[in-house]
Design a binder for these strands. Structure first.
Lengths: 196, 196
DNA sequence: AGATAAAACGAACGTTTGTTAGTTAAATTC
DNA sequence: GAATTTAACTAACAAACGTTCGTTTTATCT
């Protein structure tokens, strides 16, 4: 076997996916070419296909990696004995931190998923719908128990998830606001806006 | 002169832009081809160029139309004597309604602006930055005067604008929530989350 | 060292892209 | 009704696209 680790603990495929995530975010999936990507990896375009099967396989890897991360965290939180509002705060903070630490990946999962080929597209949308439904139910329970104000759960989920994905704009900006200030202020806004 | 109005009060160029906005939203600017567009207009691809100068001219028209609509409304609201919180509510409601009524246009302006060629790209981003700065100052004034809770204005602007743009998801969904329910609940969340 | 497997390469493929050129049909003006 | 615009058409362009091919270089294993 030839070497499959070009850096410690990361295969060349991982390197490709990482470089691709940067490129896909900057130019969009459609406008980012395999030749572009190859140049960033430091190799000819044809050589990429020794490690990946297709351009869209990269997109799939990114989208489902992110989806699974969020789902795993959700399930962990659901299993905890915290009140609903606290659970929600944990999830919001996780989303914000993912948006900070895995910016490129999350952005692509948020914005480029529609270039997924079937059946991955339907799969992805199903996962997302289920995830949001779980959040809705969490909020509905919080309202029942008097922890939160009366609000349409679906709208609340839409609102807070979209708000968080807007951190993208912060990344593009000159970042005059520190990450923890951003996190705490956003949590303040989104959580206190729900409190009774 | 030949007829330049194919429908009452709408030139063929307008028809092209309208059809393009649907296509750009569905497939993304890069993935939507001029031949695709031509088919939807009911004409050959080459014929489009009797009415427009380039593909990106369409994108420019859409992005700056939306930007101007928002800017005009902002200036009108700024001139009014309402308290800051009320002004902000007016602006939020305007954004929500624009997202309802001019969905395709607003979506493209939100998501496809980076395919603008220079110098339009820089222009667009400048306009957007100024718009957001105006909103920030409005919030800062509201905090000073004790109308709103203490929150980082930049974060508040980011949060509420992103939240609104998430209505995109509602459009894609089966719309089990009525438009006015969505509007009122979102306003409730976003405004009461700011109140002291 | 010799054999084997992995990963790089240059070249080419068949499509599709936005756009231009040249020409014809249709509509408006005088 | 003839002259003139306007807008449609077919055909073709050069460039870029993702991907495959056959081959050569590089690394690993016995």
């Amino acid at each position: 076997m030839a070497k499959i680790r070009s850096r410690k603990n990361s295969s060349k495929k991982d390197v490709i996916i990482e470089k691709a995530s940067k490129l896909f975010r900057e130019k969009g999936f459609g406008a980012a070419s395999m030749r572009d990507l190859a140049e960033h990896v430091g190799v000819e375009a044809a050589s990429l296909y020794n490690h990946i099967q297709s351009k869209s396989e990269i997109l799939q890897a990114i989208c489902f990696k992110v989806a699974n991360d969020f789902l795993s965290h959700l399930e962990a939180v659901q299993a905890s004995p915290e009140p609903a509002l606290k659970k929600l705060e944990l999830i919001i903070r996780f989303h914000i931190r993912m948006m900070m630490d895995q910016y490129e990946f999350v952005y692509i999962s948020d914005h480029e998923w529609r270039h997924l080929p079937e059946p991955y597209l339907s799969n992805f949308l199903n996962q997302r719908r289920n995830y949001r439904r779980s959040l809705s139910e969490m909020i509905a329970r919080g309202i029942e128990r008097g922890e939160m104000k009366s609000i349409e759960p679906y709208v609340a989920v839409l609102t807070l998830l979209s708000a968080i994905s807007g951190i993208e704009s912060w990344h593009r900006s000159r970042k005059t606001i520190a990450p923890d200030v951003l996190e705490n202020n956003m949590v303040k806004y989104l959580i206190e806006g729900l409190k009774k």
